[in-house]
Design a protein around this nucleic acid. Structure first.
Length: 895
RNA sequence: GCUCCGGUGGUGGAAUGGUAGACACGAAGGACUUAAAAUCCUUUGGCCAUUAGGCUGUGCGGGUUCAAGUCCCGCCCGGAGUACCA
């Protein structure tokens, strides 16, 4: 019988759905394993062939684990709130709920065709009220908790109030304002990334190079009252928690850099002519360089500037501040080399030697980091140096070096001109200085983080509403937990109001906060909800959470490194502190699949001939224009000329200058997969032409999972051919006794595939299958005891064909799915041999192969080789000096 | 600038320090076929040699080692992250 993949795949997808093959429940009698994919945002464009890459990998792993006897939780859902649906709504007037629903339907159809083992009973959508109830619930919990730095955990806000009896004196408004400095979800006037083009604020990770990640609109700094999450409270735990995670080093590194821990000291500098308590606080990691300080620099936003600026300098200072305000974040970034600043007229006093130091302001010092003020050491900091050179300020070297021009960021060396530190090495000087600072009482050791609190409001419609209203004093009042969820009201206009209010301000009688929560709100705890998706009493039942614990394997793109993966960890740690979840970290192991790029094809239009196209090999003889051509009408870079003529009306009468064999060869390039480049390959089409099993295996075969690589349909025949050969081989199954050679092939393959799956090296496992099949073909294998384990082994990769063979030629009963067939175990005895063929090399050159008995001692081998030397033409008469034996592997003979 | 990752045939990519290029695509040749599809066989890093075989070869230059794509040092190139973070 032919391998009719269309019929086979249709049949099994239907049966799996009917039988609930992939439905799982918590079952304490069995070990659990939780495999999660980052759920997709259902965009209008549908899936392209790059999207399922990670899903296929995780599906293979899930199925493998299931065959190994684990109770595998493998859910899927949709990250359904978000900007694109709303932008689309603004343009077309279609309600985001409607387009989202349509997109989800399309996604589901596409996903279903690939044969995933998702438990769809557990589907979640972030835009469902039953789901976002728990997003709002978590927000309220955060509002009602603060981070206790002594206990290093979140605690109820009442606990804090109890510690401060003096707060009883405060008015309700004052108390509310005070508590806002502690709550984990809080309101503050902060400089935000305001994006006029999108009409909303954005989080730091949603901005890149001064432009919005979505849409590429300009982003500016603006002071606004916003809701924020106090992510910084967890900075240290987010940092140290990384150590125990099985994440790639590079991803951990990205998070470490984003958290940006730096150890240093804050130090107070008295200001000349100001009262004793009015001291300038700075942060430095290099307290040892304090004798090299020749000026101070404040950020233009620094609170002291008004008070300390002298009358003579006031005009210049104010002009500078005004100018800085005008510059957008992007402009500031664009010319970081530009040195600018202005003297305040005031002087600070070096607390160590009493030297008076001029105080400047400059935008190279950031208001948001440290204290917004620095001590400048121009001799050993390149930015300070540039500033000093530009304004002709004093430079005092205090670390010995042979650099004559320019500063150097001296991380080692001996200190000079530094009073009691002179003669010490930098490494000794830093701790010595910390000690001195604390002894003199002019500062203390301090750890600073680059991490910022996350801005949590968006001036948009399509998101979770805040369950918050405000009383007459503007004090937030939470909707009682029992009344959650607060439903997102209907609107028919999705644009901001005329006075710049968010769309919710249009809703009549809406007495709640008008901004909504950002995209990351709904995706921060969805992995918990999958454990118990229909529970309306709790986010997740504690018993159920205790069983599934957290995600064992998480697969997704690295682009979420500083966004979702950071927020989820924060959110989970918070819920952990409150006792709602049993694990401190959400994702134990994480694998980042690479991006699949597009591979575009080109035709070459001859410039002065109308509608004439020249083949790639001849294009240099003409002046040509490169035109993208739909990759779906090109095979192996050869253009289907008829399809091209039919592709678009203007090509109907196209003329072609072909290669000598009549073929038209296209050029190609690797580009992003996008509609405009006609290089989008749709998985539905691949499934239709080759089958889901071929798609699955070919996506794995393309290359290492974590690596970005271009999609190239050209190679897919190889994988398809492999499956057809499997089909034919297993069709001929009988009860023949397997030969040693067949058993060796089988067990070698089991070992290799198992190791590969554990290492997520799926590309080499596909190769291993092909090698195995080639060998079995050579052996003309028919033995059931070889072919049946092979089908089990193949099931995670190509479940449909495996299932069909399992029930067809292999004759298993309908009720026993190959999904539950025990994963084969290899036996070492079939792999060992009594003798090995070793390469023997002289002076590093492989000279000949020789078969040795494994039981021979090195001495015996040396003797044997000596004997060989008598006859070998490579023998140069030198005696064998040494025989190197690595048991079971290799021998080297040193002459 | 800093941090991380990579650089291997025409292409995608294999190689616990141990015969580099597995596996696959493409290409060339052949078998079967009226033909096509499908299937199967042979060759396929480069140079030299009619064969046997030899030389050379993993971005560049050094080094360690009996032995280096792999380890170490110094460069070059590409990608990613981050950036006046004090």
């Amino acid at each position: 019988m032919e391998y009719d993949f269309r019929e086979i795949e249709r049949k099994w997808q239907q049966r799996w759905a009917e039988a609930g093959t992939y439905h799982v429940e918590a079952d304490p009698s069995r070990p659990k394993y939780y495999v999660l994919d980052m759920f997709p945002y259902p965009s209008g464009a549908g899936l392209h062939v790059g999207h399922p890459l990670g899903y296929i990998a995780s599906d293979i792993y899930s199925r493998y684990k299931r065959q190994k006897g684990f109770n595998v939780l493998h859910p899927m859902g949709y990250d359904a709130f978000g900007l694109p649906a709303e932008q689309y709504a603004i343009q077309t007037g279609q309600h985001p709920a409607v387009t989202t629903e349509q997109n989800i339907k399309r996604y589901r159809e596409q996903l279903d065709k690939i044969g995933f083992s998702f438990d769809w009973n557990r589907e979640v959508r972030t835009c469902d009220p039953g789901y976002y109830k728990w997003t709002q619930w978590a927000f309220e919990k955060m509002y009602n908790h603060y981070y206790d730095t002594d206990l290093q955990r979140a605690m109820p806000i009442e606990h804090l109030i109890a510690k401060h009896p003096e707060w009883n004196e405060l008015t309700p408004k004052e108390l509310s304002d005070t508590l806002m400095n502690y709550r984990l979800a809080f309101q503050a006037d902060t400089l935000v990334n305001w994006c006029e083009g999108l009409g909303t604020v954005l989080a730091n990770d949603e901005v890149k190079d001064g432009l919005s990640v979505r849409g590429g609109f300009t982003v500016e700094q603006k002071l606004m009252r916003q809701w924020l999450l106090r992510v910084t409270a967890y900075a240290e735990r987010l940092l140290t928690g990384l150590d125990d995670l099985e994440w790639s080093e590079s991803l951990k590194e990205i998070q470490r850099n984003w958290i940006g821990r730096s150890e240093g000291a804050t130090m107070f500098f008295p200001i000349k002519g100001q009262p004793e308590e009015k001291k300038l606080e700075i942060f430095t990691t290099r307290a040892d360089t304090v004798f090299g300080v020749t000026f101070m620099v404040l950020a233009p936003e620094h609170a002291f500037i008004q008070e300390i600026t002298t009358p003579e300098q006031r005009e210049a200072v104010e002009a500078y501040i005004a100018e800085t305000k005008k510059r957008s974040e992007r402009e500031r970034m664009a010319d970081t080399k530009r040195v600018s600043g202005v003297f305040t007229g005031a002087y600070a006093v070096n607390p160590f030697n009493g030297v008076e130091i001029p105080i400047w302001i400059s935008d190279y010092v950031l208001a948001g980091y440290g204290t917004g003020a620095i001590m400048a050491v121009p001799a050993h900091d390149s930015r300070d140096w540039a500033f000093a050179k530009h304004f002709d300020l004093l430079i005092i070297p205090i670390i010995e070096c042979d650099v004559t021009e320019g500063s150097y960021d001296a991380k080692e060396g001996t200190l000079i001109n530094s009073d009691f530190l002179t003669g010490l090495d930098v490494k000794e000087a830093i701790p010595a200085m910390f000690k001195a600072i604390e002894e003199k009482g002019i500062g203390h050791k301090k750890v600073n983080y680059r991490l910022r609190d996350a801005i949590f409001s968006r001036q948009r419609y399509w998101g979770e509403p805040f369950p918050v209203s405000y009383d007459a004093d503007g004090i937030p009042v939470l909707l009682p937990e029992s009344e959650l969820p607060l439903l997102l009201p209907e609107v028919d206009n999705f644009t901001p109001t005329h006075d710049g209010q968010p769309p919710l301000a249009r809703v009549e009688g809406w007495k709640y906060e008008t901004s909504t929560m950002p995209g990351f709100a709904g995706s921060s705890a969805y992995y918990l909800r999958y454990m118990d998706p229909h529970n309306d009493k709790a986010l997740v039942d504690p018993e159920i959470n205790k069983y599934w614990e957290n995600v064992d394997l998480y697969v997704g793109g690295i682009e979420h490194a500083t966004g979702h993966l950071m927020y989820s960890r924060f959110w989970n740690k918070f819920l952990f502190d409150l006792g709602y979840v049993c694990k401190d970290e959400p994702f134990k192991k994480l694998v980042n699949q690479g991006m699949i790029q597009g591979r575009s094809n080109f035709v070459y239009r001859v410039v002065d001939k109308p509608n004439t196209y020249v083949s790639y090999g001849l294009k240099d003889q003409y002046q040509t224009q490169e035109i993208h051509v739909d990759v779906n009408i090109v095979k192996n870079d050869v253009l289907d000329i008829e399809a091209f003529k039919a592709w678009r009306p203007e090509f109907k009468d196209a003329e072609f200058i072909t290669e000598s064999d009549g073929r038209y060869v296209c050029g190609w390039a690797i580009e992003k997969m996008s509609k405009s480049m006609f290089n989008v390959v749709n998985p539905d089409m691949i499934v239709e032409n080759y089958g889901a099993d071929t798609l699955r295996m070919y996506e794995m075969f393309l290359g290492p999972l974590e690596q970005s690589k271009p999609w190239d349909t050209n190679g897919i025949d190889g994988v398809h051919k492999f499956l057809r050969r499997v089909w034919r081989l297993v069709e001929g199954v009988d009860d023949a006794k397997p030969t040693d050679a067949e058993l060796k092939t089988l067990h070698k393959t089991i070992k290799k595939i198992s190791e590969d799956i554990e290492n997520f090296s799926f590309n080499t496992s596909v190769s291993a299958f092909m090698i195995c099949l080639n060998e079995l073909y050579d052996h003309k294998t028919t033995a059931r005891s070889v072919l049946e384990p092979l089908v089990c082994l193949l099931a995670p990769f190509a479940p449909h064909i495996a299932e069909e063979l399992w029930h067809g030629p292999l004759g298993h009963a309908e009720a026993e799915s190959v999904c539950d067939a025990a994963y084969p175990v290899y036996e070492e005895k079939y792999l060992t041999e009594s003798a090995f063929e070793y390469p023997v090399s002289f002076n590093g050159k492989m000279r000949f192969k020789r078969t040795f008995d494994l039981s021979m001692t090195p001495d015996a081998i040396a003797e044997a080789i000596k004997a060989d030397e008598q006859t070998s033409k490579y023998a140069d008469g030198k005696a064998v000096r040494k025989v190197i034996v690595v048991p079971g592997k290799i021998i080297n003979v040193v002459c």
